[in-house]
C-alpha cells in the first residue's frame, strides 16, 4: 500500500517545490498550500489518478480489477480535457467545447471496451476457471 502511495507523495512534493520556487510576483501567491484550485491543480489531480490506475493495471492479479483501473486512467484523461476546456473558456474562447466532445467519445469508447472486455472475461472464466492474469499464460513464450 505504501509502495503505491509513495510516487504520489513524490509528485506532490516536487510540484510543491516548483510552485514555491516560481516567481510569485507574476503569478500571484502560489505555493503548495495555496488552496486556490487552478488548472494546474486539476492536472495534478488527474496525473495522480492516472498513476493510481497504471499501478493497478500493472500490479493487480484479478483481471476485472485491471479493467476498473483502465477506467480510472480514462477518467484521468477526461478530467484533463474538461479542465483545459474550462481554461480556454475562461481565457475568452467562450464557445470552446472540443474537450467536451473528446470526453464524450472517450466515454463511448470506454463503454464499448468494457462490454467487449467483460465478454472476454466471461468466456475466459468458462474455459480456464480463473480470473488471475498470471495463470492465463497459454501464449507465454
Amino acid at each position: 500500500m505504501i509502495s503505491l502511495v509513495a510516487p504520489a507523495l513524490a509528485l506532490l512534493w516536487q510540484v510543491g517545490q516548483q510552485t514555491q520556487a516560481a516567481p510569485t510576483a507574476s503569478t500571484g501567491a502560489q505555493g503548495l498550500f495555496d488552496l486556490a484550485p487552478t488548472t494546474t491543480k486539476f492536472l495534478i489531480l488527474s496525473s495522480l489518478l492516472f498513476i493510481i490506475g497504471v499501478g493497478g493495471v500493472l500490479a493487480r492479479r484479478n483481471i476485472i480489477v485491471i479493467f476498473m483501473s483502465i477506467e480510472l486512467i480514462l477518467n484521468a484523461a477526461n478530467i484533463n480535457f474538461i479542465a483545459f476546456t474550462r481554461h480556454w473558456q475562461m481565457i475568452g474562447k467562450i464557445s470552446e467545447h472540443t474537450g467536451e466532445l473528446f470526453t464524450i467519445f472517450i466515454i463511448t469508447v470506454a463503454a464499448a471496451e468494457a462490454a467487449i472486455g467483460l465478454g472476454i472475461v466471461v468466456s475466459l472464466y468458462r474455459n480456464r476457471e480463473t480470473v488471475a492474469v498470471d495463470e492465463i499464460d497459454l501464449l507465454k513464450w
Partner: peptide, 27 residues
C-alpha cells in the same frame, strides 16, 4: 502479481515525468 515491483518503479517514473511536464507547462 509478481511484477508489482516493476509496477511501482514505472508509477514512480510516471510521477516524475508528470511533475516535470506540469512544472514546465504551467498554463
Amino acid at each position: 502479481s509478481r511484477q508489482w515491483l516493476g509496477a511501482v518503479v514505472l508509477a514512480g517514473a510516471l510521477a516524475v515525468t508528470f511533475s516535470y511536464a506540469i512544472r514546465t507547462s504551467d498554463p
